[in-house]
Design a protein around this nucleic acid. Structure first.
Length: 672
DNA sequence: AACTCCTCGC
């Protein structure tokens, strides 16, 4: 097996050995010296004495001792002094024979109710410099049996450690306690906050094995982390949702909001909409910013009608859409190239008195540039300056990207000049696009020179920069250089991300270096990176194009075995692989399988199918596909006709080729 | 901003 399934729960878990007894019955005979798990409070100059810590019970406290105040300063002073504490730790006498100072101190706090200890801990934990002291307080409370809800004390500490990125310490601390739902939750939260999703999920399965139910907060914190750090991916979120269902967790408004936002950010508007509907039918209202994210996801998938409907829904609910909502809608129209609609949104914005921001102008410039209307783009740029919205490097990088997509890479230098004359310094984003532009047109020297220039201007590259550089070398067939850059990136301290591995796997696959493909796959997974849908598509593609059909299919089987469905892109890759070798029967089978799975064939898939019939000299069936397209309102494109002509040439029907050519030329003149 | 899927005789 060359591919591990994207497992979420079975990786080895760092052992949490659970020691129970000595904490409930703290006799020093059984005590281990655990106190150096955390560094002891360091300063001898006591920070506490400056400001006495006095906590007072709230009036609504059930345990209320009227108007009693507690001064914790003596305790904190005592615990901050290493000599007094280490003394009592190392001797083997029971607590009753401790130094009278400590004993009296303990006695003086005997009446403090638990909530006050909790409050003290929370206050100490609010600053990372006094976490060690907080830890000392908990140890001391246990030692003298002064406060009984240790699990709460520990969960407060674990939470604080998680917030200060001290996950390892949090784990060590958790070993001192039987894990209870409370401490489990704290630990899972700490893992999620520190980006260790795998550990968090493992803890949740461990929790289930212990007979506890993970709750929605656990899932919320994981999903929120993934969303915020842009590591969210629809398959991961689906998997999480399956677990939520298995756990029979009732989804509250917050979790629902996180799920909808997650699917939106993962670029899966279908599921975002499904959960949105579910939320609304349960009377839950997602946050406005979540709705904006859904609009954005819809727009990004070209589903502008639904985006607009959702936008209207915001209005109907009585809240006025703000700039961000308009921008989200605008982005969809820019994406689909509907310039008229884009202009309409901006005019609507003006009417509603909503101020356009930098994003709005950028998107409009993007729309004009994409349509080749450079003059209009220039006017918007001027307008932007007039409205005191400073054009930034981003706007120029969008203009550059438009030139790139229109094949006018030579304009790069002009754009660079323009922005400098406007006093805008190119940033990393701009240089990334510039490198990509040169790379896409085989100007590797320019690409590398741009990279050097970026470095000399003191702009640090990022993973995207490296990925761009590596990939443009692959695309020019310089796989060795790509591999070198992959090494160099790591030498300079940049970790490869999932995209980097996808690029490398594609590169190795194109070179048919299969052992390297497997190596990169396992390396990636050993770094905790799960293969995503692009990884699978890449594998299906490279195996398929090399005629290794069984390997390609095995990839899809592995994917299915983990409960995921192959995407249409994966099927496209497979159909294409058969098509290029003229295996039309197999291509048709793959095509049927795809439709059986409920996936709608795209123009791309149909073009491949035409190619399959063409390569197999079945020209009549190739034309039947054209008929199918027309019946299903799928507009044939240049590739469709070119492929049909190729099919006719193969069977030497040259007169028909000529006819198709006439159709195609007339079509392309109509559209331009 | 970066990664995967469609035509391309020689």
């Amino acid at each position: 097996m060359f591919l591990l399934p994207p497992q979420l729960t079975t990786a080895p878990f760092p052992s949490i050995s659970i020691h129970v007894t000595h904490f409930h019955f703290p006799t020093t005979h059984h005590r281990h010296n655990h106190n150096h798990v955390l560094p002891p409070p360091q300063s001898t100059a006591n920070p506490i004495t400056a400001k006495p810590i006095i906590l007072e019970e709230g009036p609504d406290d059930i345990l209320s001792f009227h108007n009693r105040r507690y001064d914790f300063t003596p305790l904190l002073t005592f615990l901050s002094n290493p000599s007094t504490t280490s003394d009592s730790d190392s001797n083997s006498t029971p607590p009753t024979s401790l130094g009278s100072t400590e004993f009296q101190l303990a006695e003086s706090y005997r009446a403090v109710p638990a909530p006050l200890w909790h409050a003290l801990l929370k206050s100490l934990c609010s600053s990372s410099s006094s976490i060690a002291l907080a830890y000392a307080v908990v140890s001391w409370l246990q030692k003298h049996n002064l406060c009984f809800s240790y699990e709460l004390l520990y969960s407060i500490l674990i939470n604080a450690l998680g917030r200060s990125e001290k996950l390892y310490e949090a784990f060590l601390l958790s070993q001192r306690q039987v894990l209870t739902p409370l401490t489990y939750n704290a630990l899972i939260g700490a893992c999620a906050r520190n980006g260790d999703v795998e550990k968090a999920l493992n803890l949740m399965s461990k929790m289930r094995r212990d007979g506890y139910q993970p709750d929605f907060v656990n899932y919320s914190s994981i999903i929120q982390y993934l969303t915020r750090s842009n590591k969210i991916d629809s398959p991961i979120l689906q998997k999480l949702y399956t677990e939520i269902e298995t756990d029979k967790i009732e989804i509250d408004g917050h979790l629902m909001n996180d799920i909808i936002l997650g699917f939106s950010k993962a670029g899966d508007p279908t599921r975002a909409m499904r959960f949105l509907a579910m939320a609304q039918s349960n009377g839950l209202n997602p946050k406005p910013s979540t709705l904006v994210a859904v609009i954005l996801a819809l727009g990004n998938s070209g589903r502008t009608h639904e985006a607009e409907a959702l936008f209207e829904e915001i209005r109907e609910n009585g809240s006025e859409p703000r700039t961000r909502a308009y921008n989200a809608l605008l982005k969809g129209y820019v994406k689909t190239g509907s310039l008229k609609d884009a202009e309409f949104v901006v005019s609507e914005m003006e009417k509603a008195g909503v101020k356009p921001d930098e994003q709005t102008y950028s998107l409009l410039i993007d729309a004009y540039a994409h349509a080749g209307r450079w003059e209009s783009a220039r006017i918007v740029l001027k307008e932007m300056e007039a409205s005191n919205v400073e054009p930034n490097s981003y706007v120029y990088s969008r203009i550059l990207a438009s030139y790139r997509d229109k094949g006018e890479w030579q304009k790069s230098f002009q754009v660079l000049k323009d922005m400098k004359s406007n006093g805008v310094q190119p940033d990393r984003h701009f240089y990334n696009v510039m490198i990509d532009t040169f790379g896409k047109y085989n100007c590797l020297d320019h690409a590398m020179a741009t990279f050097e220039r970026m470095l000399s201007e003191g702009i640090r590259p990022d993973t995207v920069t490296w990925n761009t550089l590596i990939n443009c070398h692959c695309k020019s067939g310089r796989h060795n250089m790509a591999e070198e850059l992959f090494g160099e990136m790591q030498q300079r301290g940049y970790s490869p991300c999932i995209t980097t591995y996808n690029i490398m796997i594609n590169s190795m696959g194109e070179q048919q270096r299969w052992e390297q493909v497997s190596l990169f796959l396992s390396k990636m997974q050993s770094q905790g990176l799960l293969p995503n849908s692009i990884t699978y598509t890449t594998l299906v593609d490279v195996y398929g194009k090399s005629g290794r059909f069984s390997d390609a299919i095995e990839c899809l089987e592995v994917l299915k075995s983990t409960g995921f469905k192959p995407t249409s892109t994966m099927y496209n890759a497979l159909i294409n692989a058969y098509a290029q070798r003229g295996l039309s029967e197999l291509a048709v089978n793959a095509f049927r399988l795809m439709t059986t799975e409920g996936l709608t064939p795209s123009l791309l898939a149909l073009n491949s199918l035409i190619n399959a019939f063409g390569e197999d000299r079945r020209d009549a069936e190739a034309f039947a596909v054209l008929q199918y397209m027309k019946e299903n309102n799928i507009e044939p494109d240049v590739v469709t006709y070119t492929t049909l002509m190729k099919a006719l040439i193969r069977v030497e029907k040259f007169q028909k080729v000529h006819n198709i050519n006439i159709v195609m030329v007339s079509l392309s003149s109509m559209s331009s």
